[in-house]
């Protein structure tokens, strides 16, 4: 009895050991990363590169910490008609990993029931942005070649001085954005100046050329920067001052730098300007102005000194004229998604 049982059980155990030792070999032949992970990486790549995300307007990248839950899907494309052309503001928001947690990336960009690990990187020239963990061996991968659209800059340098100075100056300089012209659908989405999604950047340099020469002075005082709007579809269109917290410094809404110093000023700075003024109006601020596709937005720089220390005056149009606004060329980049 015992000898018989031993023989039978030994044969069974030997066979079982053989089978168990074969199972890992069976799995090793199927590098699982080459299968499901590649599909997930491909899907994430498509979502990021070919989709503007959801919500589209107001764009998801404007949602702050309080409204993060409203972001349903992260996409970096400028619009759904322009796959592979990414918007730099969306890119910056996406790669801000102090704002998005790993769970946000999983639920808004990668999707899937399994908590995948990821590493997403975007390289353009020597500029490298990256989120996620270091790569282990054996991961799913996709690489997409993209173009990145940067916002335009209106640089008002000394060459504009003859045009924008007058002896009968009212010490007010205006930068005018005509939305009907900017949002004209005949301009492709990849080259559009859209203040609702991209920052408006106004830089006045060579301020010396704008100073009053008859009244010798080395600076002029920038009293206020105000925003005015006009809606031409109204019965009696006229410019009205937009209510805004002009005296609060908020780098999420705008940044104002004077003379190249890192100090952030409010929009009623009352400080002397010697060489330059740089104002960046963020889309989060523009969205507070309740503008539509016909509105005209004025940014008015007021200098108030008695006697007048600057001759600056006039209206600078923020439009598609390359002398008025410098639109940088699209930059080529490569977006890599790795999932494991």
């Amino acid at each position: 009895m015992s000898l018989d049982f031993l023989t039978g059980f030994t044969i069974f155990m030997l066979a079982l050991i053989m089978v168990v030792s074969m199972v890992p070999g069976l799995l090793a032949g199927l590098e699982s990363s080459g299968i499901d992970y590649d599909a997930v990486a491909y899907r994430t790549g498509v979502i990021l590169v070919e989709d503007p995300g959801w919500p589209v307007y107001p764009p998801w990248e404007m949602n702050g910490e309080a409204h993060k839950d409203e972001i349903e899907r992260i996409g970096l494309a400028v619009s759904k008609e322009t796959p592979n052309v990414l918007l730099s503001t969306k890119v910056d928001a996406f790669f801000n990993d102090s704002f998005f947690t790993p769970d946000d990336y999983r639920s808004k960009a990668i999707f899937g029931d399994i908590p995948y690990s990821y590493n997403i990187s975007l390289r353009s020239g020597s500029d490298l942005k990256q989120v996620g963990d270091p790569l282990p061996p054996g991961y799913g991968y996709i690489r997409r070649v993209v173009k990145i659209k940067e916002p335009g800059v209106a640089v008002i340098n000394g060459t504009f001085a003859p045009q924008y100075t007058s002896l009968s100056s009212n010490q007010e300089f205006t930068v005018r954005l005509d939305f009907a012209q900017l949002l004209d659908p005949s301009v492709g989405a990849a080259y559009r100046i859209d203040p609702r999604t991209e920052p408006v950047n106004v830089t006045i340099t060579d301020f010396l050329s704008y100073l009053n020469t008859t009244e010798p002075s080395t600076n002029a005082t920038l009293q206020t920067v105000t925003f005015w709007k006009k809606d031409p579809t109204r019965p009696i269109p006229q410019f009205t001052k937009i209510p805004f917290s002009y005296s609060t410094v908020d780098p999420n809404l705008y940044t104002l730098h004077i003379d190249g110093t890192p100090t952030l000023h409010s929009l009623s700075p009352g400080v002397p300007v010697e060489s330059n003024i740089s104002l960046v109006l963020k889309p989060a601020a523009t969205s507070l102005f309740t503008l539509d596709q016909n509105s005209i937005l004025d940014i008015r720089f007021n200098f108030g000194d008695t006697p007048s220390r600057t001759n600056i005056t006039g209206i600078h149009h923020y439009d598609y004229n390359p002398t008025n606004v410098t639109l940088p060329d699209l930059r080529t980049g490569v977006l890599e998604v790795a999932v494991w």
Partner: peptide, 28 residues
Amino acid sequence: LMGLLAALALFFLALIINQSALVGQTTA
């Protein structure tokens, strides 16, 4: 009976592995 159980377990394992291979194949 034990042998059958082990065989059944292997069979289901194979089914799952086959499915995972199909996921990648159909996607690509």
